[in-house]
Computed example of a mutant assay.
Amino acid sequence: MTGSTLVRTHTGTVVPLRTAPVGSIQGTLALDLEPVVEPPAPPPLRALGAGDVVSVDAGARGRLEQWSLRYAQAAAEIAGGDRPVAQLLRWTDPDVYLDLARRAQLVAHAVGQAAGQGRVQSVRPQVLGVRTCFVADDAAEVSAHLRYGARSRALAMRFEVRGSRWICVALEFA
Score class of each variant (00 low, 15 high):
3 G>W: 05
4 S>E: 13
4 S>Q: 15
6 L>A: 13
7 V>C: 15
7 V>A: 15
9 T>W: 02
10 H>V: 14
13 T>L: 06
13 T>D: 08
14 V>K: 11
17 L>K: 15
18 R>H: 10
21 P>K: 09
22 V>I: 13
27 G>Y: 04
28 T>Y: 10
28 T>I: 12
29 L>M: 05
29 L>P: 01
29 L>I: 09
31 L>H: 11
32 D>T: 15
34 E>M: 06
37 V>F: 06
37 V>N: 06
38 E>H: 07
43 P>H: 11
44 P>K: 11
45 L>S: 08
45 L>W: 05
46 R>M: 05
46 R>C: 04
48 L>R: 06
49 G>N: 13
50 A>Q: 11
50 A>T: 11
50 A>V: 10
50 A>N: 10
52 D>S: 13
53 V>N: 07
56 V>H: 03
59 G>I: 11
59 G>H: 12
60 A>M: 14
63 R>Y: 09
64 L>W: 04
65 E>N: 04
66 Q>N: 12
68 S>Q: 03
73 Q>S: 08
73 Q>R: 09
74 A>T: 12
75 A>S: 14
77 E>L: 12
78 I>K: 00
80 G>L: 11
80 G>D: 02
83 R>D: 01
86 A>N: 12
86 A>S: 14
87 Q>L: 14
88 L>C: 06
88 L>G: 03
92 T>P: 01
94 P>N: 11
95 D>M: 08
95 D>Q: 09
96 V>W: 02
97 Y>G: 01
102 R>H: 14
102 R>A: 14
104 A>V: 03
106 L>W: 05
106 L>M: 11
106 L>D: 14
108 A>W: 00
108 A>T: 03
112 G>S: 05
112 G>C: 04
113 Q>K: 15
114 A>S: 11
116 G>S: 08
116 G>N: 05
116 G>L: 04
119 R>V: 06
121 Q>Y: 03
123 V>F: 08
123 V>M: 09
124 R>H: 06
125 P>H: 02
125 P>V: 02
125 P>C: 04
126 Q>A: 07
126 Q>G: 02
127 V>N: 01
130 V>I: 04
131 R>D: 10
131 R>M: 04
132 T>P: 02
134 F>T: 02
134 F>S: 02
137 D>R: 10
137 D>P: 00
139 A>F: 01
140 A>N: 03
142 V>F: 02
144 A>E: 01
146 L>V: 07
146 L>P: 00
148 Y>W: 12
148 Y>N: 08
149 G>S: 09
149 G>F: 03
151 R>H: 09
152 S>H: 13
152 S>G: 10
156 A>S: 15
158 R>V: 10
161 V>D: 03
161 V>P: 01
162 R>Q: 15
163 G>C: 05
163 G>P: 03
164 S>H: 12
165 R>T: 14
167 I>M: 15
167 I>W: 01
169 V>N: 01
170 A>Q: 09
172 E>T: 15
174 A>L: 07
